[in-house]
Amino acid sequence: MEGLRTVLAERISGQRAGIGDPQALVGEMRRTVPLVPLAGTGLWSARFGGVRWVCAFTDETALAHFAVRRAPGDRLTDYVALLGARIVDEILPTLDEPAGLAVDIASEDGAMFFPPVTGIVVDGTALDSGVAVEGGGHGR
């Protein structure tokens, strides 16, 4: 799976440089198995701009940069490897608020956010879908 993570990082770099294909980037995110740090009994996330962002990393180096900034010292960061499609199709919809995926947030030039909008998350949880979903995300 290491090669797939490298492809995602390359697609993110291209997109940030203004030469990427957004649909190909989303497709690659869905096919990739990023590393997601654990916090307590769930996935590590942060709230910003009214969105809960589940944080994921393209490889162990990117995760290590995050871990050093978040938990300095010799503390280990536990994580799971999850298929990107599983995160956006199955996990994000179970959260009780708008949720997206943030990739490589500790990298100044490699971070990418996949917001809770149509084409990234399931339609019923996309903020731009206009459809409210019972027991999960919200449409607005």
Score class of each variant (00 low, 15 high):
residue 3 G to T: 13
residue 4 L to W: 05
residue 5 R to H: 13
residue 7 V to E: 12
residue 8 L to G: 06
residue 9 A to R: 13
residue 9 A to H: 10
residue 15 Q to V: 14
residue 22 P to D: 10
residue 28 E to Q: 15
residue 34 P to I: 12
residue 38 L to P: 05
residue 38 L to Q: 12
residue 39 A to C: 10
residue 40 G to D: 08
residue 44 W to C: 07
residue 49 G to V: 13
residue 49 G to A: 08
residue 50 G to W: 04
residue 52 R to E: 15
residue 54 V to I: 15
residue 54 V to K: 04
residue 56 A to C: 07
residue 57 F to D: 08
residue 58 T to D: 02
residue 59 D to I: 13
residue 60 E to T: 14
residue 61 T to D: 10
residue 63 L to E: 09
residue 64 A to G: 05
residue 66 F to T: 07
residue 67 A to D: 05
residue 68 V to H: 03
residue 70 R to C: 08
residue 70 R to L: 15
residue 70 R to M: 15
residue 70 R to W: 14
residue 71 A to D: 13
residue 71 A to G: 00
residue 75 R to I: 11
residue 78 D to P: 07
residue 79 Y to Q: 01
residue 79 Y to F: 15
residue 81 A to T: 14
residue 83 L to G: 03
residue 84 G to H: 02
residue 84 G to R: 02
residue 84 G to C: 10
residue 89 D to P: 07
residue 89 D to Y: 05
residue 89 D to T: 09
residue 90 E to S: 10
residue 91 I to L: 06
residue 91 I to N: 00
residue 94 T to F: 00
residue 95 L to A: 05
residue 97 E to R: 08
residue 102 A to N: 01
residue 106 A to F: 03
residue 111 A to C: 10
residue 111 A to E: 08
residue 112 M to G: 01
residue 115 P to R: 02
residue 118 T to P: 00
residue 123 D to E: 12
residue 123 D to K: 07
residue 124 G to A: 11
residue 125 T to D: 09
residue 126 A to N: 07
residue 128 D to F: 07
residue 128 D to C: 07
residue 129 S to H: 04
residue 132 A to F: 09
residue 133 V to K: 01
residue 140 R to V: 14
